[in-house]
Structure formats: C-alpha cells, structure tokens
Design a protein around this nucleic acid. Structure first.
Lengths: 220, 220
DNA sequence: ATGTCAATAAATATCGATATTTTTGAACAA
DNA sequence: TTGTTCAAAAATATCGATATTTATTGACAT
C-alpha cells in the first residue's frame, strides 16, 4: 500500500485551500465584483500567511475572477452586462464545438458517464449540491471531446457565468422555467448521437438563461 | 535612490520582471517543455526572492505555459503534436470569430492602426523585432472585436503557438513560403471589409504554417 | 537480483519581518 | 473654492529563515 490516494485524508496546501475559498467567495458574491482584495484582510480571514494568499490570487487571475494590477494589488474582477454577454457568446461557440466533438467520438463509457451525471443532477434538484451536479452534467457532456484546452475554457466560462447567476438572483434563476425538461432534451439528443439536436437544445438552454439574466442585470 | 535607471520608464516589480523573463525563456525553448522548474534555480538565475518567482510561475499557469502540481512544484508545460493541433484548431475558430467581428465593426481608426501595424511588420522583416511586430499585426486584425476575453484567448493561443515554431525550427519557419504575400492578402481583404476573403486568407495562413510545423514536429 | 524501509538530502511551501510604493489628508497658496 | 505639496499612514511587494513534504539512497531481507 505505498500509493497514496489523495481523495482521502491527504493534507491540502495552504495555497490550494486559499484558492478554493477565495474562488467560492467570488463566485457566490461574498467578495463582490470590483472589490479591492487586501492581502492583510484576506490573510486574517483565511488564517494563512501573505504568500499563499498572493499565490492564490495570482492563480485566480488565470480564471479571470481576479484582476491584478502591478504594484497596486488585486481586486475581484468587475462585472458588467457587456462582460456577461461576452461570456455567453464565447460559451455558446466553445461549448457547441466541444459538444459536437464529444458526440462525434461517442463511446459506451461516455454514454454511461452521461447517464450517471444526468441522474445525479435530477436526484439533487433543489439541494445544496445541485450546483455542483449541474456543472458536472454540463462538463460531462463536453468531456468526450479530447481537447483539454477547450474543456478548460468551457469550465472557466461556466464558472464566470455562475457569478452572474448569483448577482442576478442570489443563485436561483430556476424558478419559472422547466429546466429539467431542457436538460432532458440535451441529454436525449446527446445519447442518441444527434449532434444537431443536442447543440440546438444546449444553445437554446443558454440563450433562455441568458435572456432572463440580462433583464435582471440592468442595474449593472 | 533606486538601484537601476530603467531607461526612464516606470520601475517594474520583481514579480513582473520574473514573469516576463520566464515567459520568454519558455517561449523560445530556453526552458524546455516539461522541464522541472526549481524555485531555487530560478531564484538565483533571476536574482530575486522565492516569492516573486512563485508568483510569476502562478501567473504563467494562466497562460498555460507552466503546470503547477500541488506540493510538487512547477514545470514548463509539456509539448506534443496533439497539443499543437489543439492550439491550431482553437486558434482557427476563435481568430475567425474575432476577425469577423472586427471587420463588422470597422472604423477609420482601426483601419489606420491596421495600415500602421502592417507597414511596421513589413519594415521589420528579418530583424530581431519581427516576431513582436508580427504578433502586433495579427492582434491588431482582431483588436476591433470589442471582446476583451476573446482577445485574451487569441493572444494566449498565439503565444502557445510561438513555442512550437521554436521547437520545430529554432524560430524561423518562414523560409519556403511567401509569408509577406499571405499577410498582404489578409490585410487587403480586411481593409476592403471583405470578411469572407479575410477569414479564408487567415485560416489558410494558419493551416499552411500548421501543416509545415506538423511535419517538423514528428519527433515529439 | 529485487523490493522494502528508514535515514538523509533536496525541494516545496509557508511564515514573519522589512523595504518599497501608493494613497491619504492636512496645510498652504492661488 | 480649487489645486498643490509633502509628510504620515496604509498597503503592496519582497526577502531571508524555517517548517513541511517529497525524492533519493543504501542497508537489509526475501
């Protein structure tokens, strides 16, 4: 038993812990868009030294969740309607690309992972962990594309979008639509290998959410 | 008062200096793909402390030029034929998108910036600074797209591609083709507002370079 | 030979202190 | 008022030292 399984009780680094905490806080809006992120403040808030905080913030820069200005510190990335629409456009293009590649390379294994992630998402509807399952479902759809960079972009853009959902409605924009049916439609088409239908359903899913959020975000 | 007179320009932070140096070294292959990047080694090489080095490496993670493994340090991003082709595909899609947006929003100002960057690139053919001017020309083509994130992605992908040019041929892959004519064709179409022709010329430009590099990169 | 284990070496990660830069604000002049 | 200057305060950036973790080595048993 010399191989350690790091899903278990492995120690996590202070930097990674800080990264995850800060990321979460920015996504849900606890650290509001545009807010100055002072090292000392975060240092005490997270109980770590300045180095891990700075490193975590540098990493978050890669996710476009934090802006870094040389010699002038860090701030949570600003939010705007234009930025939201930019994210939506890029997401549509890149996820469309990834979904089509995924479907074109369909395998039984992918199909099974899809079934599983779809099931879990339905099961967790309304629960604390739905958000996680929802992202997992969408990423699984794209996961067969054999393009790590494309998937990284899609994952990044997905997260950036989450922030706007929280900005618009405290995280729950799923009140007035039959989200489950929309997911079902994407899922069915993907499993059936119908790239056109799957892509259309996915883009419509995003456009509906996008249009709704746009109206809510007027204040920005 | 300060140690160095930096040709009159603003004093640069150690982190930023380290970032720029390391980036350059990775792009031109002085730090080879996959190489372990030891903090102490870089620290002495760059004459700075460990913190700026770590921070610079964290930032380079965002550019996908450095990989970070928790508790196990950093390494220059590995290179592979598959990765190169992934970059080419993504670049083609995203630059096509950006170029069409740029042309659709054409203004006299953009036209003038285009003329200038094209002229400068021609002027600097064969010189030390051609690479810089070449990137500037390509980025100017896309710069009118009013989509900062798209431009960031395109710039990132452009840089990642540079690395493969150096890997394949020490930086000069421009021997057997009339690169100037290819640029001229893109430029003319863009200025004429012909999105179809410009996009076709741009994609062909990338495909020709890509095909050539692919043959050179067999060793990977 | 081959694999395990513990001691050692090496490297990473982190902290606390300090240097540097930017920001603030009060005094003063136009 | 409005703008300028400059010292104090605040915040960022950086360093050097240390704690923690991972990698290496060689003795020893199989």
């Amino acid at each position: 038993m010399n191989m350690m399984d790091d899903t278990g009780s492995r120690e996590i680094s202070a930097t990674r812990a800080a990264y995850l905490s800060l990321r979460e806080m920015i996504l849900i809006g606890k650290l509001p868009a545009g807010k100055k992120l002072k090292i000392e403040e975060l240092r005490t808030m997270l109980n770590v030294g300045a180095s891990p905080v700075r490193e975590a913030l540098s990493l978050l820069t890669s996710d476009m969740l934090v802006e870094r200005i040389d010699q002038r510190g860090f701030r949570a990335a600003p939010a705007s309607l234009a930025n939201f629409e930019e994210i939506l456009t890029l997401r549509s293009t890149l996820e469309d690309m990834a979904l089509r590649q995924s479907i074109a390379r369909a395998t039984p294994d992918w199909e099974e992972r899809l079934v599983l992630s779809h099931h879990r998402m339905k099961r967790l509807a309304g629960s604390e962990t739905f958000e996680e399952a929802h992202k997992s479902f969408h990423m699984t759809l794209l996961s067969n594309a054999d393009s790590p960079m494309l998937q990284r972009y899609c994952s990044q853009l997905y997260d950036l979008n989450i922030r706007y959902r929280y900005l618009a409605a405290g995280g729950s924009t799923y009140q007035n639509r039959d989200i489950a049916a929309e997911h079902e439609e994407i899922f069915d088409a993907a499993v059936a290998g119908d790239a056109e239908a799957a892509s259309a359903a996915l883009l419509s899913h995003y456009r509906l959410t996008g249009d709704y959020l746009s109206t809510q975000l007027g204040a920005l």
